[in-house]
Each structure stands twice: as structure tokens, then as C-alpha cells.
Design a protein around this nucleic acid. Structure first.
Lengths: 207, 207, 207, 207
DNA sequence: GATGAATGAGCCTTCATTCAT
DNA sequence: TATGAATGAAGGCTCATTCAT
């Protein structure tokens, strides 16, 4: 039973990360990666099937993990009473976003990869996934708090999409601009607070 | 001493636009462009020096034009009395942004090029330029209106940068997402209003 | 001291047949074959030594079998009295060729393999073997029937070779063109009758 | 106006011929060809577009030429009175086939290429083309001479196809087996005579 | 100035075969 | 004996750029 020689995949992934970060998906060279990792190009194909597979192996765990965590949070929130919901947070919980930042910053390079270096890999739309999930979350919140945001016309689906998308794009600016984790905490918090102002105006929940 | 045959450069630019839009900067093929334009690859080099030069020729006028227009606006605004300034608008003038949208939408493809197809061309940071200019503008406004936003600690330079950057990224979502001009007017207007809520909280100008 | 696991070789052969038929010898992939058979590439080498060995294992029994059967027939015919020979058939016996067709069609894929998919395997000359055997057979027949075909110059060895070769190529067209067995019977019969006309002219046996 | 450097295409074609003859279409290496020709691989693509294009450039003139010549002959024959036709030849004219052999042997390698080395190039069915043309020719001849071959059931389209196909395959055996031109003349002549016997039996034209 | 053929490195990928386990 | 990861050469092809004409 021939085993994969240990450490090779790790070295390969490390070198791939470096290469993809430096040159982007399309311009990255598998030859270069294999060489730096001290293997043959062939072993990339043995282990990861593809250039795409290699990129995926690098990025997928972090991305899927974030999405899963995010959906988990949503589900948890959904099971609070609407009273608790209202008490707990207007729109986005403080703690949740610090966890969000931590999750992302614990896998900083992976997210840089997706955000800055994935052109051509078909991986560019993961923010959209986040946005969709968040929107469901928000929609439900609006419904359960009885806000007239939609019925009054102050909010429309398209606009909500853009707003949400802008919000997460904003958040991931931390990664794109290589901010430190500390800065990111502050930035995200402020952005959140900033958005809450706008949302308050739209939702008009408070007495 | 033959002159550059007229029309060729234009055809070259048109075909380049098409190619870059379709495949992105890195994957675009100069051979293809030259062929479609009915010239030789060589003439690209004669006229534009480079692949980079060709992209630049395509994109630079619109980008530089926007920046220039933007600085002009700032300058004009700067020469109003602070009283007039305060009267005219809190942060961003209504009219100014509809002109902004018009400027961009009159050169829609050029901006799509910069925003979506410039990876590898070193052109990705034009928003940063816009942001810097806007920030100067805002800083001066804050100073002249006497807001305590900075001194109170509610605002910091870094945060202001991110906020502004997020705002313009948001605005350019209209282009990235291929919105119609009409939709873009609406979207930008709403985004502006949304942001004003946050800014009001930060600036606390009004009585 | 493990034995070769039974059934594996068979599965390997089945999958190899499929692969060779689909892609031809040179383009066939051993990896693919091993995978489809649920074994490792290595076991191909253990069991068949080689790509060539694998092809050989597939094709050799049918080919050698046909050749052996053919020689057997010749031998049997050879022991008839020349009188019986003349009575039985001019050149090719009716029954013999229907058996020939049956033999081939019972191993249709194997012969397709040799005839259509063996480029690069060094197996392309099995018809030659058939031809040689047939020629000996014919030569003896001519001698024993006392035909003046050779002595008169109406027949030469080279021409006889080509004629025989064309005949068998013709017969194997049934396989190459994927004819049904029924069609093949008819086709071969007609071809035989057609050839007999020519041979009669050459041999001039009959009164 | 950059001209193709002279002689390069010729050298390329020569080396390609050699390579294809030696290894067959699929196994031939463009790198090898370019190297032997003293050029870069790229120039193959400039001049011939493709591996397929290179093979085509090699083979197409001879093949198309033969087909054209063949159709020309048919047309010429068709304009003779049926009386003249009957007089001139039963099925295939003596002179025509010696011209045929000459045509082929003047381009011996090209035909070897098509007949032995074209697997994978989509060029394998040129004999079929010949056969189709010949069959039209024969069908018309049968009709005009008033033979009852078809109506009597002695001949059917399928069988005629196989017969014709076998005939031309037979003829091209000369090339496949590397016969000398002299041998080929004799072989083809004999094959023709041999076939005429069979055809006579089928057509039953003569009194 | 314009041309476009030539360059040759580089791309991703596949392959038969080997050999440590 | 069986495994299948590793090898590394080779495959066809594309590219931006150069430069003789």
C-alpha cells in the first residue's frame, strides 16, 4: 500500500500559497511550485488532480468553514425569541463580528488568496454566498420585528443586496489592504456602527 | 517618413477594449487584438510601446479625466464660504454625484476595464487616488465647519480612509454589477443617504 | 508468498480490451485500465510485464488459435487423396470459410483489436502469417492437381502473395466495417466466389 | 511586409514527412520536426497552424490531386458513346491504371503517409472517397450497357462497395508493402485482370 | 512607419514505468 | 506480491516581443 510521502503535500501547499499570492491564479506556474517544494510536477496531479484542485485545496477549507460558521450563527440566532433578538443586537452582534474577524485573520492568507488572487479559478464569488446568507438572516429579522421597511418602500431587495454586498466588501478590505488584526477589529466595529446608523433609519424599530 | 496611418490606433483601441473586457488583462492576446483590428502585432508596439501601454492608452483618459473633474469640483467647493458650504450639502452634493455617475457611465467600458479586467496591469489602485482626494476634501470640510469629529476621537484618519474607500467601492459596484444608468442613479443616491446617516453621527454638525 | 488474486487479471483484460478498442494501442492509458479494473498500475506490470504484454495477452490467444485452426485444416486437407481434394473444392471449401467466419466472430473484439487498434504494438502483420500458411496450402494444391499455373507463367509467387493478401484483407473488412455475422457470411461467400473466377482462369484445372 | 523566410516551409515539410513516416501521426513530435528543420516549434504554427495542418499540407495535394484526376477520367469516359465504352474496356482501362500507378508512385511517400501513418489525423478514409467515385462510375456503366447484374440479384450495392473497396485496398497494398514501381505495374495489372474475371461473371455483358 | 514571421520559453497536462513500502 | 506515489520527459500549443524587410 503505497503511502503518500509525508510532508510533500504540505510543502506543496505552502509553495502554492506563496506562488498564488505572488502571481495570482492564472499566472502561477505549477512547475515553479513543484520545484520550490522539491517535487515533480506530476505529484501535484497525483495529490490535487489539477491546478484548480490545488487552489481549491488551499482555499476551500477556510471558505467553507467560514460559510458553515456563518450559517451556524444564523441558525442559533434564529432560535432566540424575537424579544431576545431585539435585545441582543440591532443588526449584527458585536461578538459575532469579532469572531468573524478572528476566523478570517486566523486564515489570513487563504482569504487573501480568494479575495485577491483567484481570478480565473472560478472562486471569485464567495462574498456573494455570504451576502445571500446574510440577507436571508436580515429578511427574517425584519419580518419578526415587524418593521415596515419593505412595506413602506424604504427598502427593496436590490438595494438590500447592494448594501449587504458593500458591507462585506468593506469588511474584507481589511484583508485586501493587509491591515493588522488589531486595526481590523477597530475598522470592522466602526463600519458596523456606521452601518447601524443607516439601518436604523431604514428599519425604524426603536421607539 | 511615413505617418501613422490614421484610424489604425482607434481600431486597435476598440479591439483591445473588447479583448481586455472579454479575457482580462493577463489573458488577453495582442495577436488577437492586432488581427481583429486588421493590423500587425508590431504596430501595437510602434504605437503603444507595450501591452501595458495599450491598456493604459485605453483607460488612462477616463481615469485621469475623472480624477481631474473630481479635483476641480473640490476646488470649486473650497472657494465657497463655509456658510455656503454648510448650506449646500452635508457631505456630498446631490448634483455632484449625479454628474459623477454620468461621467462614469459615459465611459462605462473604460471603468469596467479598470475595475474588473486590470489584474496584472498595475492599474488596480485608481480608487485609492479618488479616496485620497476625497479625504482631503472631507478633512477640510470638517475643519472649516468646526466639527469636533477628530478632536473628540469619533473619527480617525485610518477609519476615514476605510469608510471612504468602502463608499467608492460601493459606488463602483454599479459598474462591476453592470447596473443600468437609471439603477445606478438610484443606488448611488441611496448609498449616499445611507452614508450620511453615519457621517452625521460622526460629524454632529447640525444643532 | 501471496498468489495472484484471481479475477484481477480477467478484469484487467476486460478493461484493457475496452480501452484499446476505444483509443487504439498508443493512446490507451494503463492508468485508466488499472483504475477501471480496480487495481493498481503496478499489477499490470506484475501480470503482463508491459503495455505490449497486456495487448499481447489480449490478442494472442485468438490470433494463435486462428492460425492453429488454419494449419489444422490444411493438414487435414493435405491427407485427402488428390482426387478427393479436387472433388471437395476448387480452392477454398465452403464449410471451412463459414467456420473461419465463426471463429473470428466468436472473438470479434479480439480481431478488431488486431485489425484496427494495434498501431504501435507491432502486431499489425498477423494477416501475413495467415497468408503464408494459405500460400503453402495453395502451392501444394497446385502441385498435386498438376496445374501448369506456375510453369506457364500465369502465376508467380509474388502475385500469389498479393492476391492472397488482398483476399484476407477483404475478408477482414467484415470486422473492420463492423458487419453483422449474417452479412459477413454472405460477404465472404461472395468474395470467395468472386475469387474463384479469377483462380479458375489461373489454374485451368477443370476440363 | 515580412515574408516567410524561404526554404523553411520546405525543410519543415521534409522533416515532417520523415517523422510522420517513422512514427505515425500521433506519435510524431513537432518539437523533433522543428529541430531537425532548424526552426522553432512556433514557426510550424505560423505556417501550418497545427499538427493536423502540417500533416494536411503534406498529404492533401497528392490526395486531392488523385481524386481530381480520377473524377476527370470518369467524366471523360462518361462522354464516350456506350459503344465506344464497351469497346474500350470492360471495367477498368489498362492505360488508366498505369497512369494511376504512376500518379501514386510519383508521390509515393505521400500515399504511404495516408495509408500507413495517418491514424489520429482524420485522414484515414480517403480510399472510401475513391471507392464512392468508382462506384458511381461502375453503376453508370452497368446501366448504360444494359447489364442485368442488379435486376437479377447477382449484384447488390453493399457487395459492390466491398468489392470495390477490396480492389483499391489491394491496389494500395503496393504502397503499404513498399513494392517497386515495376512490381506495382505488374501487380495492379494482374489484380485488374483477376477482378475482371469476377466482374464478367457478375455483369455477363459479352455475347 | 509597418509588417508579421520567428523566437523560444513557458504553459498545463499526461504518460509508462519504477520502486519503496 | 500488490500497491500507487513519484518521476521527469514529453506532448501540443500560445505568448509577448523582436527585427529583418
Amino acid at each position: 500500500m503505497a503511502k503518500l510521502r509525508e510532508g510533500v503535500s504540505d510543502r506543496l501547499l505552502d509553495c502554492a500559497r506563496e506562488e498564488f499570492l505572488a502571481k495570482g491564479y492564472e499566472e502561477a506556474s505549477l512547475r515553479e511550485i513543484a520545484q520550490n517544494a522539491g517535487t515533480s510536477t506530476g505529484s501535484i496531479y497525483t495529490r490535487f488532480k489539477d491546478k484548480a484542485g490545488l487552489f481549491d485545496a488551499l482555499v476551500s477549507p477556510s471558505v467553507q468553514g467560514l460559510l458553515a460558521w456563518f450559517r451556524g450563527e444564523e441558525e442559533a440566532f434564529r432560535h432566540l425569541s424575537s424579544c431576545e433578538q431585539a435585545l441582543q443586537a440591532y443588526t449584527y452582534g458585536e461578538k459575532r463580528f469579532s469572531q468573524f474577524v478572528d476566523y478570517v485573520y486566523d486564515r489570513f492568507d487563504d482569504f487573501r488568496l480568494v479575495l485577491c488572487c483567484s481570478q480565473g479559478s472560478g472562486y471569485m464569488d464567495f462574498i456573494e454566498e455570504l451576502v445571500k446568507t446574510d440577507m436571508e438572516y436580515t429578511r427574517r429579522f425584519i419580518q419578526e420585528t415587524g418593521s415596515d421597511a419593505f412595506t413602506s418602500g424604504r427598502l427593496e431587495d436590490d438595494f438590500m443586496h447592494m448594501l449587504t454586498s458593500a458591507f462585506y466588501s468593506g469588511i474584507f478590505e481589511t484583508v485586501v489592504h493587509n491591515m493588522s488584526r488589531q486595526k481590523a477589529y477597530g475598522y470592522v466595529g466602526r463600519l458596523r456602527r456606521f452601518y447601524i446608523c443607516g439601518w436604523k433609519d431604514i428599519l425604524r424599530i426603536s421607539p
